[in-house]
Amino acid sequence: MVKGGQQIRLTRKGVWAGFVDLMPVAVFSTPFGIAFGAAAIEAGISPEKAIAMSALVFSGAAQFATLDFAGPDVAWASLALIVLAISARLVVMGAVVSRELNALPARHRFPALAWLSDPNFARTHPKFRNGETDVGLLLGGGLALWLNWVAGTAIGALAGDVIGNVSRYGFDVVMLCFFAAVLAGEVRRPRMALPVAVAGLCAVATQGLLPAGWSVIVSALAGAGLSLVGRD
């Protein structure tokens, strides 16, 4: 597909640029990984399994939720539902960047999707909107996050008790701050202010009424629904 005269593509240069661009943010997923690794050990999961899980699943929220199910009798159906609900936002993010992704050949599309995550999505989506055509940025950012996440998990699983509580360094709020910063950037566009406010309030209102992942989806749809109201 052609956008702004340029073919949508995935280049090694783009992957590297995305990797370098997101690295300052991604290093903070190391302390997250440490927290997960330590929590996994506490839940009775072996270090090798914890590391393999981070490498394959690559989703902090889904993995932390999974730890609640660790034990001799796993309630697979409940686990599956919770993981799906928590990950449902990935469906939305995938749909948002689908124009770029579907223009790629399958051998590029599926790796790019495997490393799709909230921070590299939040960073790359505004660039696509401004005419960026190299999906490598998305994949590179994902690889930077993944590397730190897996390395952090390994440190936490093998040496968690040496490091202690990550909240002493403020590492536990890094992702929250990252999303808050992205949001503050988005709201500068006037037509975003109302949907963002509605989505935020809706998430507050549905908290406790809906399971965690679902309240995010419903709230996001409520906010985005506003874009359909009014003049074209």
């Binding site: 929250l176 999303f179 988005e186 809706c202 709230s219 996001a220 749809l221 906010g223 985005a224 506003l226």
Partner: peptide
């Protein structure tokens, strides 16, 4: 708009 709303909901 959905993209910004998802992030808003996650933060909230």
């Amino acid at each position: 708009t959905l993209a910004a709303s998802v992030i808003a909901a996650i933060v909230a």
